[in-house]
Design a binder for these strands. Sequence first.
DNA 1: TAAATAGTGTCTTTTAGACAATATGGT
DNA 2: ACCATATTGTCTAAAAGACACTATTTA
Lengths: 243, 243
Amino acid sequence: MKKPVDLTEKQYISQYNVHDFDVPLTTVDMAIFALIDQKLHVLLVQRNDHPFKGEWALPGGFIDLKKDKTINDTAHRKLLEKTGIHSPYLEQVQTIGQAKRDPRAWSVTILYFALIDYFTISSKGIVPSNEQAQWHTLEQAQNLSLAFDHQQLLNLATSRLRSKTRYTALPISLMPEYFTLTELQNSFEIILGYELDKKAFRRRILDAGIIKPTDMNKRSGKRDAQLFCINQLPLDFQFPRAI
Amino acid sequence: MKKPVDLTEKQYISQYNVHDFDVPLTTVDMAIFALIDQKLHVLLVQRNDHPFKGEWALPGGFIDLKKDKTINDTAHRKLLEKTGIHSPYLEQVQTIGQAKRDPRAWSVTILYFALIDYFTISSKGIVPSNEQAQWHTLEQAQNLSLAFDHQQLLNLATSRLRSKTRYTALPISLMPEYFTLTELQNSFEIILGYELDKKAFRRRILDAGIIKPTDMNKRSGKRDAQLFCINQLPLDFQFPRAI
DNA sequence: TAAATAGTGTCTTTTAGACAATATGGT
DNA sequence: ACCATATTGTCTAAAAGACACTATTTA
């Protein structure tokens, strides 16, 4: 394995071969969240191949060294393959690497999570992939026995989602183009699992200037509610305090 | 590359070989910070081998599939090799994967940062490694041209350090066993690059209960100052607001 | 007019910032 | 006594929580 010491860098690189070394498997896995019927859902796929054939898992796969220029490209590509969605909120959560997490080999996975508005994709439907993809409520997903250590990955992603919901405006990514403040508050509450004070919530969101009012109203049976839309991109805007 | 479809999982795994696939290089890199002479320093190594032979870089290297059970083991092992320190604060920052970041191959690196108390290692000295390791002030390091994309990695680690210093008590990891509140405040200020209000700082730290007073004083020429020590482990304790 | 939902007023609480005042120890 | 540094007192400011109140729409 030892190389002669008097090579130029060019010579060294030209004779370097990754396959000469013991390397781990490296994959990207994603927890893709959406709100459906007032519940937090996560997209799972049923594995077509070994290992864990037939079991539910987070969507993911190998980096395609040809197609992907960066690891974010891999994540975006996987998201597109599974949901047909191009570029919503996508964030790296953590990288988990362990000798035993994959029966095939020492394995590293880079975990992402994504938030998407279900209604923008439900119109298109989920783009077919070679695996069965299906939305599960978070509760269902947590009660399934998932492939690999995906149970743990799902928990990591969920707690990241919850904690960022407490000090950013992340859940706006789950909303359709126009939404009411009550609907937005609802999304926050579903993710967090507890209720928020209406006044405090509105003050917080409006004072931050991350959404702006439109001149449209939503008629939903009772009193009309004003519709809002996203003002600017920075959804990772941080509030000075958590809720 | 396609396998027959009727294998059992056991058969599939037994014939699986990572080397049959195009895989990225996977490494761990670390930004190891310490305070020396009232300045934030980072440990750099001078590369012994291609690529970037002779240039300064963050310490790091390949996962050792034999020695390391997890990727955190790799990080701890690297830290031990470079500094002789066993288990201080060590946190994963981010994973960067790009086709071009390493001239040898598509490469993924998992970036960690560590905070150590310089005086606990200066007594031992830096354990020799096959590379020249040397402390640089952050300023020096940022003005060097570092190997690979290590300049960018260093910036990522630095901004993570700074931002966590604003809402956790992380810098306690940089302190010796016993320290005064003024010394602690000083460490915060050096990392942040701006001054803090004395009263507010003390109130914040003491009310959080993360350090406890001892019955010892420090005589430093002027008025004695009370010595404190760490109360509990959770240095990733989060304050409700940032400073 | 009643019910239900949207939206507001306002007082309290928490925690950080400002800055002056006091305490202590060495010279 | 004086200086420098440690330590505390106290007022202000910002932003969240509590909760009651008003406004609008439909039935």
